[in-house]
Structures are given as structure tokens and as C-alpha cells.
Amino acid sequence: MAQALSAKDTHLKRILGHIKGREPGPVLVFFGGIHGNEPSGVQALQEVFGELQRNPLPVKGHIYGIAGNIPALLQNKRYLEKDLNRTWFREDITALEKGERTGMTSEDKEMLEILGVIRDLLKAHEAPFYFIDFHTTSSKTLPFITINDAMINRKFARKFPVPIILGIEEYLEGPVLNYINEFGYVSLGFESGQHASEEARVNSVAFLWLSLVFSGALEEEHVKQFRTYYSELKQSAANNRNFYEITERYAIESGDTYEMVPGFYSFESVKKGTLLANHNEQTVVAEKGGILFMPLYQKQGAEGYFMIRRIPKWVLALSATLRKVRADHLLAALPGVSWKNREKAQLVVNLKVARFYSKAIFHLLGYRNRTLDRDHLLIKNREKVARNELYEDAPWY
């Protein structure tokens, strides 16, 4: 097992490392430890930056490593007062910065510090950005990528030999990557394995090196173990490179008692009626058969588990074609669907009129939804903000 961060890490700094390349190139920004009980990302960043400092390579652009929830990392807790990865709301940030909110939490302070770093980097560089957030899960799992569903994220994520999850932003509010996605840059989350496991650390190191090569920051020939890293990830992912989408989130409220039945793991198929957990002294069973995803085996957390389903390749291909021809403009002609404003980046769906429309139609065209009230959905198109032109010369585009 990999070890949690120890007393020797009490000097942990926000900027874990920075490598300035010899030539212009991409700017890669890696986050580790946004959750304090997930040390593998920080350890991987420390290892790779250490290697690059001992044995410099011809890097292009810039590479940054950012530590997340430092106080929680040092106590090996997911968070101290509230989940740092559920706090990234523009309205809340504005209120905090204006001093309009009292009772600032430890995580509020961490968020504002990280936000300051992000803003500084965006001001300092004009090159294409890649934001990558390292995480681990409380259950056993294949390594996997989560993305907000813009085509630039899909294209870059496809380079890695691991499964890719779409749609999690519909079920989680306030993750750091949701905030960053609004800038239109490539961004993804990488879940490397189970908390504090050696496999999670190894997978994080491999993913980091592959990211440097796939983004163009390093040439493959300069990373001597590139094929080894690729093979390690492919084997750890059991040759699974499928796309999946979230279909269900089992929510837990603060103060609830929740205990997952031991032994479940991510990507495990379960049958209808399978006993999954005990929640507030009531049994929880699978309402229908499906693929279990991220079952909760830790005390802190608001999601007991998710369910996912595989997305057929033809659906992904159709989706890409429809977005290319901007077929989403046809949606506003449907009864009960209208543009929210002149920018035409968001649609409002009146469920009284459009209750029979499938979410799959909106997903095909790059929209993800958020509930406004009982009768209305706000759906936002990720393609509208995606800065595709910055990546046209990238090796993966």
C-alpha cells in the first residue's frame, strides 16, 4: 500500500513543482489532493517533478503541479469542514471575495488560494492549457477518466487506454473542473485506483507521463518508459476503453447513516434486486440491473454510489457529426424549448410541454442539464465555450 502523507510533508507547498520548457508549447496544470484522503496524485507529482529536475528533458511549454486541500491532506481526511470539490460556484466565490459571507471555512480559504493560482497562470500564459485533476476512489476500481462532454475533451481523453465517463457534471455540483471548463480549455479528471493503494500511485505516475507526451510537452522518444507506462495503464484498466454515461446517483444527506455492503467495486455488473447498502436503517437494493460505479466505502461523501451504462460507438459518432454541423440550433424549434438569452449557449426546457423529450437527444448535441425548478431544466452546451482553435496543431486533434 502507498502511504498517506506523513509529518515530513508539513512543509507541503501549493506549487508542488514548475518546469519551464526550452521552447513554446502547451501549459499543463495538474491538481493533486483536492480531497485530502487521496494522496496518490500529490505523490505522483512529487515523483515526476523530482525525476525531471534530476534528469532534465527537452520540455516544451510549462508544467505545473498544484496541491489541493493541504490541511486535509496533512490529516488524511477527505475534508475538514466541507468538500473542497463541491465549492466552486461563481456566486459564492464573488461573495467570499467581496467579504459578503461570514464564517469562512478552511476549504473556502483553500479554494481562494487555488483560484488565485489559476488566475495567475491564465494571465501569465497564452498557450493552450490542459487542466488535469488526480483523484482516487474508496472502492476497488479500474482507472478511468471523467470529462465534461466537449469534443476537445473527448478527443484528448481517447488517447489514454482507460474507460471514459461522461455526464458526471449533471450529478455533482461545484467541482473544480466544472469551474475550469467554463474557460473552454481541455480539462479532465483521472481516477487512478483505490485510495492510498500502490496501484493508484503507479497509475497516476503513468498517466502523468502519458499526458506530457500526448499534449506535445514531450516527444515520445524522450520518455524511455513510455510504452511501459502505456501498457501498465492498459493492463490496469483490463483493456477497457469504452465510453460510459452516468444514469443514476444515490444521494446521502449530511447526518445520514450509510453503509455499503462490503465487496463491491466500480464497473461491476449488478442484477435488479441486489442488496447494495443500508441507509438510515433501511436496505437499499438495485432498482434495475446495471453497472455499479464508485460505491462509497468511506465516512465522508454525499454519493452512496452511481450507476452507469456503456455508450455505443455509433452514438458517439453520430454525436460528433451532429455537433460538427451545429444541429443543436434545431432544438430551439421544438415545442417547450427556447434559448435563455441572445448568446444561445443555454436552453430552457419547459417540462410541462417537453416532458417526453429524451435527455439522450440533448446529450448527443453536447448539452448537459441542471434543474431550475420542478417544471424547468437549464441545459448548457459545452461546445459553445470550447476553444477548439487553440488545439488545432496539437498531435491528438
Results as ranks from 00 to 15, higher is better:
P128W: 08
M111H: 01
M104A: 06
G116K: 07
R119P: 12
S106C: 06
F131D: 09
S106Q: 13
E107M: 01
L112M: 10
H125T: 03
D120S: 09
S106T: 12
G116D: 07
K109H: 05
S106V: 10
I118D: 09
A124F: 13
K123N: 12
A124I: 13
T102D: 14
K123D: 15
S106N: 12
E97W: 00
R119N: 15
L115P: 01
P128T: 12
E126C: 04
G116W: 05
L115K: 06
G116T: 11
R119W: 13
M111Y: 04
D108Y: 04
D120P: 10
E97V: 03
G103R: 02
M104K: 06
P128S: 11
I114Y: 07
L112F: 10
R119L: 15
F129D: 00
D108V: 04
I118K: 00
L121N: 00
K109W: 00
F131K: 09
S106P: 01
L115T: 09
V117E: 03
K123A: 13
E107N: 02
D108M: 10
F131V: 07
G103T: 04
K98F: 03
A124W: 10
I114R: 03
P128N: 15
T102M: 07
H125F: 06
E107F: 06
G116I: 10
E110V: 14
E107S: 07
E126V: 02
G116N: 10
I118C: 15
I118M: 07
